[in-house]
């Protein structure tokens, strides 16, 4: 018989290292033709940080995404970025990028204010233009601004560094500020359990993530979808078999990760939440994407067959054993 069940799982996740300093930095230069070099230590391992940094720099400078060239993770060229871990790069390297862009922009603002004869605070940089928020006849293009910069011998360069506001935790009670900000998420999973074979099929997964600000929806969804499927592996497939210190299944034919056949229908919900500490409020999603799907799938299996499991992964053998259907022990 096939039995269906649903389950809920939630999580919180502190962004950055726990109760420790973990800074990152960025360098930026706007060139005379308005193209930009951005140098960040942050390693893009496929999660898309290079794209995120370019979007943040473009927004802050008022230039287009295409203008920004990112050089990343080359220790002779880029400043310290720390690890691409702890869901920290959008928040920390993102803040560093924003600060670097802001420093370059301060010089640009000074020169533009002089040229347009308006106070710098009034100026808005957007889509390749600089204009006064009070009088939009007072405007110039970025190219004009860069020509003006050249005339005055000014360079649009900036460096930014950001270290999240945390404290060391008390050695005995762990009191303190472990993280500056947290991401939150809730996942609801629906599964179908075959009580004859013990097989668990994850049918549908809804995963809602508070990311602060979504810098790039497609990439946030990509993280969520990848996390949900990895969570499925955690909950119902994967286990390193180790005997006398030897890993028995170090290869794909023996350590099964989810394939295209195993993927549930995934409904990502991106939740935004205003805040000051992240770059424009952005937090992190890399690890949160994985976490809540694990308890949600486990709970859905429990709901389907009324059995509580205390070990992950829940394999077909485990299901059959709990249902009293294992012929041999």
């Amino acid at each position: 018989m096939k039995k269906r069940g649903k389950g809920v799982g939630s999580m919180w996740y502190g962004i950055g290292n726990t109760g420790l300093p973990n800074p990152a930095a960025a360098f930026i230069e706007v060139l005379s033709d308005t193209s930009v070099n951005l140098m960040v230590g942050c390693a893009d391992i496929g999660q898309g940080s290079t794209t995120v940094m370019a979007q943040i720099a473009a927004e802050e400078l008022g230039l287009s995404y295409e203008n920004i060239h990112v050089i990343s993770a080359d220790t002779m060229v880029t400043p310290e970025g720390g690890a691409s871990s702890a869901s920290r790069q959008t928040f920390i390297s993102g803040n560093a990028t924003k600060l670097a862009a802001r420093q370059a922009k301060a010089t640009l603002t000074e020169v533009a204010a002089g040229f347009l004869n308006v106070p710098g605070e009034e100026l808005i940089f957007r889509n390749g233009e600089i204009f006064s928020s009070n009088d939009n006849s007072k405007k110039m293009t970025y190219r004009e601004l860069m020509a003006e910069m050249k005339k005055h011998g000014r360079l649009a360069v900036g460096a930014g560094a950001y270290n999240p506001k945390t404290t060391y935790l008390h050695p005995e009670t762990m009191a303190g500020i472990p993280y500056e900000v947290y991401s939150y998420a809730t996942t609801i999973a629906e599964v179908e359990v075959d009580t004859e074979t013990g097989e668990i099929e994850v049918l549908k997964v809804v995963s809602a993530h508070d990311v602060g600000l979504s810098v790039n929806d497609t990439m946030v969804e990509g993280q969520i979808e990848g996390g949900v499927v990895m969570g499925e592996g955690f909950a119902v497939f994967e286990k390193i078999e180790c005997s006398n210190g030897v890993i028995k299944n170090p290869i794909f034919s023996k350590y099964l990760i989810p394939t295209a056949m195993d993927v549930p229908d995934i409904y990502s919900v991106v939740v935004e939440c205003e805040g000051e500490c992240g770059p424009y409020g952005a937090k992190g999603v890399g690890e949160p994407a994985l976490i809540p799907s694990i308890p949600a799938i486990a709970a859905a299996v429990e709901d389907a067959i009324g059995v509580r499991f205390c070990c992950l992964p829940i394999t077909p053998t485990d299901v059959l054993r709990e249902l009293g259907k294992l012929k041999t022990q």
């Binding site: 947290y182 508070d210 939440c273």
Partner: peptide, 20 residues
Amino acid sequence: ESVGFKETLIQAAAKAKEVM
């Protein structure tokens, strides 16, 4: 600041109601 947990619960539940 930036505590959006309740919103994830509300929106996940609403979406699940719609698709499950």
